[in-house]
Design a protein around this nucleic acid. Structure first.
Lengths: 144, 144
DNA sequence: TTACATGTAACCATAATAATTACATGTGGG
DNA sequence: CCCACATGTAATTATTATGGTTACATGTAA
């Protein structure tokens, strides 16, 4: 199973807001056209980004704007904003192992520890990349 | 979304095989009792572990045995054996972004790169832990 | 006040998971 | 040799998550 594409959609939106800063009004309909999805999907993601303080949007007024500089938003910020993986929940552990068995009554504790470490390693990797890096990639790819 | 508990079940099974090496016959029914699931679930996982060369099982003959030493099996080996996350597929990217938009036609490439790095970071974390470590955790917890 | 945008609830089709049933296949003791 | 028993595996089901969509309430500014 994969982590929801909501994360990828959110990054897409934010990069677009930066690149189109002064060119077009970034309505949910316009953004949906670039992502190729439904405007409601965009608005739902946008609502989460707003909740995390990453964008400014107002009901009734067209367009959204970044609330921070690109270099101040890491992929981890976006990941947390759109809530694609809960704390300590990247890996699921089997429920209710048999408490009468030594392995059954003690394994959860060890698994939780190791899984949590693995999840944190992944999150640290997202933390060292900013949206500025992603936008640079995009600009560079487009010039080749 | 979470990674299938099949991974956690597989680790559970392997630890149990090690700890019960000479005490009981580790039939799928017995193992299912400790994990608290259906024997068929165990047999399916066991089949994948067999395919990866981690256990010996034979159709018709009761019980399974480890094919390697505990210290020679990493969590990453188990993770790959049970195929819970495909290569470069921990994160899903949105399909068919608009090729007429600069962001749409270039973002996949950047996302794939970053997502792949994050997945690899997680996998490296699994690679440095062996089943021996997990069994040690279990034995220690049980003595407290 | 009206045209248009956002905010959100509700619903649906689709896909994945884990559990389960059913049965074919393989094995070795008696 | 055959039969009790274990594994191998296909097929089905209930449950759950996701992404898309419709519908409509709410907000804004010209």
């Amino acid at each position: 199973m994969s982590i929801s594409s909501r994360f990828s959609v959110a990054i897409h939106i934010l990069c677009l807001l930066a690149i189109n800063k002064d060119k077009v009004t970034n309505t949910s309909e316009y953004l949906a056209g670039s992502v190729n999805t439904n405007p409601v999907v965009i608005r739902k993601v946008m609502s989460m980004l707003k909740g995390a303080g990453l964008v400014h949007v107002r009901a009734g007024v067209a367009g959204a704007k970044l609330a921070k500089k690109l270099s101040e938003i890491t992929l981890l910020d976006v990941y947390k904003a759109v809530n694609v993986v809960a704390e300590n929940d990247l890996f699921s552990t089997h429920e209710h192992p048999n408490p009468e068995c030594m392995v059954g009554r003690n394994i959860q504790q060890s698994l939780t520890k190791q899984f949590s470490a693995a999840q944190k390693a992944m999150e640290r990797s997202l933390e060292i990349v900013t949206l500025e890096d992603v936008v640079q990639d995009i600009l560079q790819s487009d010039n080749v």
